[in-house]
Design a protein around this nucleic acid. Structure first.
Lengths: 143, 143
DNA sequence: TATTGTTATACTCTATAACTATA
DNA sequence: TATAGTTATAGAGTATAACAATA
């Protein structure tokens, strides 16, 4: 009677998330991106410019950890990074056209692969699952 | 037109899983368990006995990593560990009654907390979400 | 020779502290 | 003095290699 009627949510979500990330690394590699590089490109997509601190905070990374990532993305011409003329301590970071193209191509390939996994759900279940997942992800993201 | 109509699955699942795990650590701590200790207790629940290798494989851990975990669980009297008389290289591992009680209490508290999160979904969505999640988790677990 | 459990070692990832340059 | 970015250091977590006991 005190047996669990379902596995722990965390015991399903965490390994599934790790498996998805692992499966997507080759896709990113084909696009010349690391996971952190991709996360940075995604973080830059919504706003035109960012300071490095704001960007790090937005993607929930330590500011010291994205520095090497930004170096590499800049070297490859995917982002633009320059001191803010108004406050020369701060660096403004933005996507280059190449960076936007790369970001969108990588994301398209990733979501196509994810859609493959979702074919194991009925169309109706898939819709509910995605909606519910967005709801829960938003809840934990806001704290 | 090439804008994403949804966030990446992995970008929702992975942080949500991490957030859940982080939120459950205090629950485990109240029960005197680490995350790995809890995972080992869960892994021991379904079968009466295990060799350490089989147990490690079942919970997808390295065999070298669960040794300290087993030491601590044994010290606390939650598991029983003894050489297999038939093959004295192997150690048979099993839950003690105390171990089973601890496992069930911890899991009950964890799932109660998870149920709190699930109240943000409608009853119908919750049912579909859990079913879909179990389907997807089983797919990635089987490989 | 192969396998179980163990220990020791190395490696990766992440966080913390310390430094510079601007403000 | 406070902050943005950077670099150097240290810590945690993990995997790899080497070992002893047994088969």
């Amino acid at each position: 009677m005190s047996e669990a009627k379902r596995p722990d949510l965390a015991a399903m979500l965490a390994p599934l998330g790790r498996a998805l990330v692992a499966a997507e690394l080759p896709v990113l590699e084909r696009n010349g991106l690391t996971m952190w590089g991709y996360v940075v490109l995604l973080g830059l997509g919504d706003e035109p410019v960012y300071t490095q601190s704001a960007l790090a905070k937005a993607i929930r990374a330590d500011k010291t950890r994205i520095i090497g990532v930004l170096d590499e993305l800049q070297r490859r011409g995917l982002i633009h990074r320059a001191p803010d003329p108004a406050d020369r301590r701060a660096h403004l970071v933005s996507l280059t056209p190449d960076g936007r193209t790369t970001r969108e191509r990588a994301q398209r390939e990733i979501q196509e692969q994810e859609d493959q996994l979702l074919t194991h759900l009925s169309a109706a279940d898939r819709r509910v699952f995605l909606r519910a997942l967005q709801t829960l992800a938003a809840l934990t993201a806001e704290q």
